[in-house]
């Protein structure tokens, strides 16, 4: 049993690997070797930085096909984190428009820079701890109270087009962002469970146990 963190050159993979190592005796590997990924029992798709670079690096490291393969494998749980969630959608408006993996049909948009709340200007990136409202039940929410706070840092957010894909939302200004989306053996979150203290670790522990 091995959990593989997909290393396509973008993002901080070490935080998530450390959190997983804290939770399980299973092997946790950071890898870009196709066979390692195929042999792993579950995989994490992290992501940080600009969408153009994330999709570009995935292509350059020749991992796009492997990731597609794993998304289609109903026996292999996959957890997307941050830009990893955004990459699963159809399209992102970042960098002038970038086609994504199209596993889910959502679109990735930017928070407007002129949002206000109670007369206070809202900053972008949306950075810090915000409440996540659970939208549908899911095994990954087990033991996590509704409206629990998780740690976010992002300027772009997912707008899903299919309600059945949405498992959690966050409210920022007048935007409702779809911050937990998934289908079948795939679940993806905009927030950072590896940095969200006890409840973040709970979500990761749920992922480690998840048998879709």
């Amino acid at each position: 049993m091995t959990i593989a963190v997909i290393d396509y050159g973008m993002g901080n993979l070490h935080s998530v690997a450390k959190a997983l190592e804290h939770l399980t005796r299973e092997a946790v590997i950071i890898t870009r070797t196709p066979d390692d990924l195929r042999n792993a029992s579950r995989v994490i798709l992290p992501g940080q930085g600009a969408m153009r670079d994330c999709m570009g690096e995935l292509e350059r490291t020749e991992l796009t096909g492997i990731v597609q393969e794993m998304l289609d494998d109903a026996d292999k749980p996959l957890l997307g984190i941050c830009v990893g969630q955004q990459m699963l959608q159809q399209h992102s408006k970042e960098n002038g428009g970038i086609p994504c993996l199209s596993y889910l049909s959502g679109e990735v948009k930017r928070f407007p820079s002129d949002m206000q709340e109670d007369g206070e200007r809202l900053k972008v990136p949306h950075m810090g701890w915000n409440h996540v409202t659970q939208h549908h039940q899911h095994p990954l929410w087990e033991g996590i109270p509704d409206n629990e706070r998780f740690y976010f840092v992002h300027s772009y957010y997912v707008q899903a087009s299919n309600d059945a894909d949405v498992f959690g939302t966050v409210r920022y200004g007048d935007i409702t962002a779809h911050v937990a989306t998934g289908r079948d053996a795939t679940f993806a979150v905009q927030f950072h469970p590896e940095k969200s203290a006890a409840m973040g670790l709970q979500l990761l522990a749920n992922f480690i146990r998840w048998a879709p």
Binding site: H14, E21, H22, Y151, E194, S196, G200
Partner: peptide, 29 residues
């Protein structure tokens, strides 16, 4: 970073991308 699972910022004497890479690899966010 192996024991505390909230964001960790590290500052002081950072002059190059290599410095940053080393800190992120060590577990800084």
């Amino acid at each position: 970073a192996g024991e505390v699972f909230i964001p960790l910022t590290v500052g002081g004497g950072i002059r190059s991308c290599d410095d940053i890479r080393a800190l992120l690899n060590a577990g800084a966010d």
